[in-house]
Amino acid sequence: MKTLLILSHTYWQDSKANKALANAATELDFVKLHNINEIYKDGKIDAEKEIALIKEADFIVFQFPLFWFSTQSLMKEWQDVVLTKIMHSDYSKILQGKKFGIVTTLGGAKNTYDGHHGYTLNELLRPIYYSFKYSGATCIDEFAIYSADASNLPLQEYKNYLKG
């Protein structure tokens, strides 16, 4: 299983939890860490380059801290550029047979996302999942790290999730 870990963090330089997770992911020989904030500092996503990476992957994972109940703007740009290219080209079947999942870090406690404010975490992530499901991928439930603290991360569980 080859895992493509697509990471986005608007404030990557200041990240603690996501940097620690990314470092743990680099210990796994089956993971390709792909930090789009480092690669696309100009904000211009290269769809062909991204599609080439997707072709090689069995499991595609988005990793990001949840900001304002969604992804960072660059990850949304990735979705707009890459998924649109996939759907309107000869690549339209590229996601079939692949798995897709989300790793997200959250500043709030788990009960903050239990729905009592209107939506659960799974409901907030549903548009992302549906985009991949619509494109033919099999979706795996999210791996969420609540009250994210870099000094106390569930690194083994995270590594297990990246196996798909």
Results as ranks from 00 to 15, higher is better:
Y158D: 03
G107Q: 08
I86H: 11
S15T: 12
R126K: 13
S89R: 04
K41Q: 14
L33D: 10
A109I: 11
P154V: 14
Y113D: 05
R126A: 15
T26G: 00
T112M: 14
H117E: 11
G118A: 04
S151G: 15
G97I: 05
D90H: 11
G115K: 09
K19D: 11
E38I: 00
K2C: 00
Y91H: 14
H34N: 15
I36W: 11
A25P: 01
A137C: 06
L74C: 11
P65E: 00
L106V: 02
D141M: 01
R126I: 02
A52E: 13
A109G: 04
L7K: 12
T104D: 02
G164A: 07
T120N: 05
L124G: 02
A148R: 05
Y161D: 01
F67V: 06
I39G: 08
L125V: 09
E48Q: 13
K99M: 09
L153T: 09
W78G: 05
N122F: 03
L21P: 07
L28K: 08
S73D: 11
H117Y: 14
G108T: 00
Q63Y: 10
T105S: 15
Y91F: 15
T120G: 04
D42Y: 09
A150R: 13
M1V: 12
Y113M: 06
K98A: 05
D141E: 15
I128F: 13
H88D: 07
G101C: 05
G97T: 03
D80F: 02
L5N: 02
A52M: 06
S151E: 15
K32G: 01
K98N: 06
Q72H: 15
N18A: 04
H117Q: 06
F62S: 12
N37M: 04
S8W: 02
D58G: 13
A137E: 02
E50W: 06
K163D: 01
I145A: 06
I51P: 09
G136A: 12
T120V: 09
K32P: 01
H117A: 04
K110T: 03
A144Y: 09
E50K: 01
S89W: 05
G136C: 07
G115F: 10
I51V: 13
L124S: 04
E27D: 15
T120Q: 06
I86P: 04
K49C: 00
D46M: 03
G115T: 08
L7Y: 05
M87Q: 14
N111W: 11
P154W: 14
G101M: 03
K85Q: 13
G115Y: 11
H9P: 01
D141K: 08
K44M: 02
Y129N: 08
G118M: 03
K159H: 08
L5G: 03
I51Q: 12
Y161W: 10
T104A: 13
G108S: 14
D58I: 00
Y161N: 06
I140L: 03
